[in-house]
Amino acid sequence: MQKSLHIDPGKCTGCLQCEMACSYDNTGTFNPSRSYIKVFTFHDEGRFAPYTCTQCDEAWCMHACPVDAISVDLATGAKIISDDKCVGCKVCTIACPFGTVNYSQATGKVVKCDLCGGDPECAKACPTGAITYIDADWTGYDRMMASAAKSLPSAEATH
């Protein structure tokens, strides 16, 4: 059973532990601005929403890449960047309609969530259970992803 990140914004307190854990795991520094998961703040409502790549089935980023630098990790289903192949053209960053693959000035390549190879640091660091890593089927997450994708008309409809 493939797992996925399940995010429950209602439980998020905005503590940014996920951003710290992610940036530390991926860059060796505690630098939230370099985290692949990002907590968005809704000041007026006093709410927070952690957001990262949903490893969507459409994989817009992967299909747009001109040099085959993005592939599917068969173990986790994550879409992962090969630093060796990525030329830093940024086309994937405009192709992903969720804004979750981003250019890193520091590396000259793009970065995105790779599910940490199957043991995501953000989920482990989250003290409130707002981010969990659980069986995809139990979460309704697939349905959410499907509906997000459906809202993009260029996702073709097969008759």
Binding site: T93, I94, G99, Y103
Partner: peptide
């Protein structure tokens, strides 16, 4: 450079 893809979304 960050999150610009969401403009497409």
């Amino acid at each position: 450079t960050q999150h610009i893809g969401v403009l497409r979304g």
